[in-house]
Amino acid sequence: MTSELLDRALVEEATKKSGLVWVRGAGAPAARALWHAWHDGAVCLVGDGPGEQPLPGLADGGSAEVTVRSKDKGGRLVTWTATVSELPAGSAEWEAAVTELKGKRLNAADGEAMTGRWSRECRVLRLTPTGATAALPEGPLAAPPLPTSATTRRPVPAALPRLLAKRRKRS
């Protein structure tokens, strides 16, 4: 009983303090970093809409594996399993979750109108801990980053060092 209480306390405190959690839904090839809000004993996520984070492999009634990192050191603190439930837009649970998520959402282009957009175009999910935590792995689990169109890895243009040197001389 004491071990269960300690595990639950660890999951809650670590998840509350972390800005990102790594989530791998059932059938997803890899875990994905997602921003979240901790509300009423569960992780709340918003995504799968234009301009929002993708939520691959997370389906209503499914399960997920959540890994929480340390906010200051970035290392893995705990990995726990969760049941996934989709909150119906406009419900009391949805409104409470969205109120928490709205405060955590950074750089939203539509400001106060984002909750209306979330209700029309996005999914709000609740990941409730099942109580099971996984043992920390022995070795490193480093993996290459997932492919994205946002990556721009090109060589520095040949003229750039000269242009920067001219700017310094003018100052």
Rank of each mutant, 00 (worst) to 15 (best):
residue 1 M to G: 15
residue 5 L to P: 02
residue 6 L to H: 13
residue 8 R to F: 12
residue 11 V to R: 07
residue 11 V to S: 08
residue 13 E to W: 13
residue 13 E to N: 11
residue 20 L to H: 11
residue 22 W to L: 08
residue 26 A to S: 02
residue 26 A to K: 06
residue 29 P to Q: 05
residue 32 R to E: 09
residue 33 A to L: 00
residue 34 L to V: 05
residue 36 H to W: 06
residue 36 H to R: 00
residue 37 A to G: 01
residue 37 A to E: 00
residue 41 G to R: 02
residue 44 C to Y: 02
residue 45 L to P: 02
residue 49 G to F: 06
residue 50 P to E: 03
residue 50 P to V: 00
residue 52 E to A: 08
residue 52 E to P: 04
residue 54 P to N: 07
residue 55 L to I: 02
residue 56 P to S: 02
residue 57 G to H: 05
residue 59 A to T: 13
residue 60 D to Y: 07
residue 60 D to G: 06
residue 61 G to S: 01
residue 64 A to C: 00
residue 65 E to T: 14
residue 67 T to W: 09
residue 68 V to G: 02
residue 69 R to S: 15
residue 71 K to P: 00
residue 72 D to S: 14
residue 74 G to H: 10
residue 78 V to D: 02
residue 78 V to Y: 06
residue 81 T to C: 03
residue 82 A to C: 11
residue 82 A to K: 11
residue 82 A to W: 08
residue 84 V to M: 06
residue 85 S to Y: 03
residue 86 E to V: 11
residue 88 P to R: 12
residue 89 A to T: 07
residue 89 A to R: 05
residue 90 G to M: 05
residue 91 S to E: 09
residue 92 A to S: 14
residue 96 A to T: 01
residue 96 A to Y: 00
residue 96 A to F: 00
residue 97 A to T: 03
residue 98 V to T: 11
residue 101 L to G: 01
residue 102 K to A: 15
residue 103 G to Q: 07
residue 105 R to Y: 15
residue 107 N to P: 07
residue 107 N to G: 08
residue 108 A to H: 10
residue 109 A to Y: 14
residue 109 A to E: 14
residue 111 G to V: 12
residue 112 E to D: 15
residue 112 E to P: 10
residue 114 M to K: 15
residue 115 T to H: 04
residue 120 R to V: 09
residue 122 C to G: 10
residue 126 R to S: 13
residue 127 L to M: 08
residue 129 P to S: 13
residue 135 A to L: 13
residue 136 L to D: 10
residue 139 G to Q: 13
residue 139 G to N: 11
residue 141 L to T: 15
residue 142 A to S: 07
residue 142 A to P: 04
residue 144 P to C: 04
residue 144 P to S: 07
residue 148 T to H: 05
residue 150 A to V: 00
residue 151 T to N: 13
residue 153 R to L: 15
residue 156 V to K: 10
residue 157 P to R: 11
residue 157 P to D: 04
residue 161 P to K: 06
residue 163 L to E: 09
residue 164 L to I: 14
residue 165 A to D: 13
residue 167 R to P: 02
residue 167 R to A: 07
